[in-house]
């Protein structure tokens, strides 16, 4: 008798652009890299409120939310997403932030529960493997 095959679900990631920021180069490159790495990627498009992002994450049953912010509004927007996920009982969804985030702010966001922060120059391979690990530990 052959052992039962364990079908592992593909990792699902929501790539989101919160706030008014229109810079989507990074979000699109990351979305594509994650997809090429075999993950299922949902891209929200621009100008989502934290509430819309939380709802999409829950509805799409994602493992990881990737927030891309280059506008400097991360200290306002990221905590709102974290709180929203908590309020919906979805605090196990890992939140990863990419963009222009000063070191001091990155430390603060991690204290609040962000799994990882990736600034300019981060390698795609590094981000893909981080997200894979974050999803598996869910």
């Amino acid at each position: 008798m052959t052992p039962p095959t364990v079908l592992q679900r593909r990792i699902r990631v929501l790539v989101a652009k919160p706030g008014l920021d229109g810079h989507d180069r990074g979000a699109k490159v990351i979305a594509r890299a994650l997809r090429d790495a075999g993950m299922e990627v949902v891209y929200t498009g621009l100008r989502q409120t934290p509430e819309q992002i939380v709802n999409a994450a829950v509805e799409e049953d994602v493992d990881v939310v990737g927030l891309s912010i280059l506008s400097g509004a991360h200290n306002t927007l990221v905590p709102q997403v974290l709180e929203g996920l908590k309020a919906q009982g979805a605090a196990d969804i890992a939140v990863v932030v990419g963009g222009i985030i000063p070191d001091e702010d990155a430390r603060h966001l991690k204290e609040l529960g962000v799994a990882g922060v990736f600034g300019p120059g981060s390698s795609l391979a590094e981000i893909v493997s981080f997200i894979r690990k974050a999803a598996r530990s869910r």
């Binding site: 706030g19 008014l20 920021d21 409120t49 400097g72 509004a73 306002t76 927007l77």
Partner: peptide, 22 residues
């Protein structure tokens, strides 16, 4: 700043966290 570029006044809810930042 982004609210101005997008046509929002500084006291609009969507401007929160973005006023004078960029």
């Amino acid at each position: 700043d982004l609210p101005t570029l997008m046509g929002y006044d500084a006291d609009h809810p969507r401007a929160r966290g973005e006023v004078g930042v960029e």
